[in-house]
Amino acid sequence: MTTEPSDSRDLPTNTTRRSWLEMFVAMLLAIPVLGPALLAAWVVIRPGKRADPIEVMALPLAEIPSDGVRTFRVQYRRQHGAFVEDVERVVYLRRKGNNVIALSAECTHLGCNVHFDAANKKFACPCHKGTFDLDGAVLGGPPPAQLRRLKAIVPTDAAAPVRLEI
């Protein structure tokens, strides 16, 4: 632009003004693109709402062992995006006195389901070989935290099922 004859007469001021004008118009051109792009990005990446905890019925205390674990599949319905999803997740239940320890099977490392190894009384993850003890504490491997404990509400009536908070 600066080499055009019409500009060469008073180069300093005119060039600056012209380049400012060019930049301003370029910015105007960007508005119709950036506007929708920013809106779309905001809609997609804005954080979702936190779901409220749900209470799910598990088993009566009498059916939960204290020397091992009982594999229980909790089932509940939740909203996931546009879908209503019937969720099924594995929880390991163990009785400790009059309380129940409910451990989510989801490995705290990267989310694979841990298995209960009955012979060695521990949980083992098939993905990256993390292991946990009966209380969910890390024994070995990469997991950074103990297995997630679900809040278990034990009813006074021994025959009534224990409730779990998901």
Binding site: T71, R73, V87, E88, R89, V90, A105, H109, L110, C112, N113, H115, P126, C127, H128, K129, V138, G140, G141, P142, P143, P144
Partner: peptide, 30 residues
């Protein structure tokens, strides 16, 4: 099946290197 306990997840071969790398770092070093 998210509730399947029998499943041993494996990535395809070209992700084995990072997959194995993950096993080397434990706890907070993850």
């Amino acid at each position: 099946d998210p509730a399947d306990l029998d499943y041993d997840p494996r990535p395809d071969w070209y992700f084995y290197a990072p997959f194995q790398l993950l096993k080397l770092f434990k706890g907070e070093n993850e």
